[in-house]
Each structure stands twice: as C-alpha cells, then as structure tokens.
C-alpha cells in the first residue's frame, strides 16, 4: 500500500468555485480540477512572492513536494488556458485551519477531528466539501 498523502496546510480556501473561459467556439465542456493546495501554492509563490522553501514550511510539506504541487498547478492552469477548459476548485489533500465543513451535495455540516485524515463527507462520501466560516455556523 502506498504511503498516505501528507495533508497540505491551506490558510484560506480560494474565494471562488472556479473559472470559465468565454467566447470559445469549441464548446469543450470538460473541467480541470484544481486542488486547494495547488491554489495555495500559486498564491504563496506568485502572489505573496515567497520562495519555495518558505512556502513549503508554511504548507507543512517538504520543499520538493511544494515544487511538485506548484508545477502541477501551473500545468493545470496552462492546460485550461490553451484548451479553453473550465477550472473548478476541489478540496484535494488540503488541511484547513477552520472548524466546520459543509458538503456540497447533501448540505451536511461536520467537523473533522485531528486524527481523521479523510476529507470527504461523512454522510454521502462526496468529496465536494468546503469550509464554513466558524462564525456563520
């Protein structure tokens, strides 16, 4: 069995659900899924202008792993640009600082205790979960 993926710390999830190209005649409806950790990698490296070592420490992964996440994120974005595909953000292997999560398909709200590594909905097992601000429960 392969080793379990170490969860990547994400300070804040993206404030959008995705990006869609407009004016494309091809009409390709397939979607590219961008993980939260990939969004975070792009943000830390290219928006906050951190070097990979600092960013890796912040995300609680090794520098090499950070570089891989960053590369995968860049490639996904490039692919969606060139092939005019929609980008959608998905939870991926992220670990958020907040407390309550909400499932996008059955609307169940739940907490994820520390020792639990599963980031899927405990009721319907959908991976479409997002963080709920701890204040607006």
């Amino acid at each position: 069995m392969p080793r379990q993926t170490r969860l990547r710390k994400v300070v804040a999830p993206p404030s959008f659900k995705g990006y869609k190209p407009y004016g494309n005649i091809k009409g390709d409806s397939s979607v590219i899924e961008l993980n939260y950790e990939e969004y975070e990698a792009i943000k830390l490296a290219d928006y906050d202008l951190m070097n990979h070592k600092e960013a890796a420490e912040l995300m609680d992964v090794s520098r090499a792993t950070f570089a891989r996440i960053y590369e995968s994120a860049r490639r996904k974005i490039a692919k969606s640009f060139v092939e005019a595909k929609e980008i959608r953000t998905v939870f991926g292997n992220a670990k958020l600082d907040g407390e309550w999560y909400i499932c996008g398909s059955c609307n169940a709200r739940f907490t994820v205790p520390e020792e639990m590594h599963k980031q899927s909905c405990p009721v319907c097992r959908s991976a479409e979960v997002s963080l709920l601000g701890s204040s607006n429960r």
């Binding site: 609307n107 169940a108 739940f110 907490t111 994820v112 205790p113 520390e114 639990m116 009721v123």
Partner: peptide, 12 residues
C-alpha cells in the same frame, strides 16, 4: 466532543 475527537455532523 471536540476534545474527545468525536466527529459532529449536522443535518437540518
């Protein structure tokens, strides 16, 4: 429940 690492699920 948080302290004892019990997962809470809210259904409305």
């Amino acid at each position: 429940l948080d302290k004892f690492k019990i997962q809470m699920v809210i259904l409305k």
